[in-house]
Design a protein around this nucleic acid. Sequence first.
DNA 1: GCAATAGTGAAGTACTTACTTAAGTATTGA
DNA 2: TCAATACTTAAGTAAGTACTTCACTATTGC
Lengths: 111, 111
Amino acid sequence: MLHDPAQLDLMFQALADPARRSMVERLSRGPASVSQLAEPLAMSLSAVVQHLNVLEASGLVRTEKLGRVRTCQIEPQALRAAEHWINERRLAWERRLDRLGDFLTETKDES
Amino acid sequence: MLHDPAQLDLMFQALADPARRSMVERLSRGPASVSQLAEPLAMSLSAVVQHLNVLEASGLVRTEKLGRVRTCQIEPQALRAAEHWINERRLAWERRLDRLGDFLTETKDES
DNA sequence: GCAATAGTGAAGTACTTACTTAAGTATTGA
DNA sequence: TCAATACTTAAGTAAGTACTTCACTATTGC
């Protein structure tokens, strides 16, 4: 699992844009070409390619060109890395709250 | 659970910066004042406050001012929303792969 | 009261982002 | 072979980001 801060920067930055998230959403339902990704989006194909490059640089998407068609796929490991970072922080917080709860309960028992 | 795209923009954007992630990391170990958050960071207090405002606008952090000290806390619900978005996409992808696997297995059985 | 502490707000600057248009290349199907 | 398809690349622009410094206000402790 990647914990490289720079990689996390790229992943979260990539997910911070609604057009890119909609591309990831589309790809979560299966591979797609660049044109297919562009179809529902109200922007030029060029803009879509630029977004795609951001997604690819972040590691969230992998692409492969066959003939004139570039086919895109999600890279679930990268999604997992982002998910993992958030999960760790949330768990740390919740464990802390639990310990605090235990402490308060014990203190009450001793009173 | 919030699925508002604009809110997700703000949360992922907030998490895309290493200084802000380090602030969230610090806060996952318990509440802290602005100065405490600033202490390990190589930047002015003003810059830290600006990062904090980004975190607060994203909903990831809640702050409360008592006297001259502003105390900051993680908002775990917001972390959960970000985590959830990623998780849904990853699961969709993995379910798809499973179905594909089933299909291939069935096809082989029928041959 | 007054100095130290804790944070706020505004303005400026260098850099980055999210597009656009326009022109170009490679592939394919009739 | 030639027109349509599927991208690719470059350059330009408007807006946004991540800082800085400096001047300021509110609170607290002696």
